[in-house]
């Protein structure tokens, strides 16, 4: 349990296993789960009975909180954010919450300012601008 105590997402302490793993934004999870649900629909008559409660709740949640609906936009978001040398986890928090100001972005992802990366306010601002552009043209 000692590892448990030290975890802190704000400092990007989420354990090696998850740090290296691929994070998913809500909109990506929504695409995956809906695809899986459609497959289930084809093979059985009552798909809602087939899936676990965890699946059902997750699907509802990501549908409700997805910022981007269309698959192309989702891909673009990841592409744009991945230009900024972010950790996977940071990328997904930004993609999920879509902060509007630099201040907000830093409050959401405090680790963005640490670790000696060249993230000055201008770079963050540009990143947020790029993000909002995708939203606007979706």
């Amino acid at each position: 349990m000692s590892g448990e105590e030290e975890e802190n997402a704000a400092e990007l302490k989420i354990g090696d296993e998850f740090l290296k793993a691929k994070c998913l934004m809500n909109c990506e999870v929504s695409l995956i789960l809906e695809h899986k649900y459609e497959q289930l629909q084809q093979t059985s008559e009552d798909p809602m009975n087939q899936v676990s409660q965890v699946f059902e709740k997750s699907l509802q949640y990501v549908k409700r909180f997805s910022r981007y609906k269309n698959p192309d936009a989702v891909r673009q978001v990841r592409e744009i954010l991945s230009r900024y040398q972010l950790a996977e986890f940071e990328l997904c928090v930004l993609g999920n919450l879509c902060p509007e100001t630099v201040e907000e972005a830093i409050a959401m992802v405090p680790s963005i300012k640490t670790r000696g990366r060249a993230h000055d306010d201008e770079a963050i601002e540009k990143m947020l601008n790029d993000l909002s552009l995708i939203k606007r043209f979706e």
Partner: peptide, 11 residues
């Protein structure tokens, strides 16, 4: 696909 909440995470 797993869902794992972390301390300090904002959602």
């Amino acid at each position: 696909v797993v869902f794992r909440p972390f301390k300090g995470e904002i959602l």
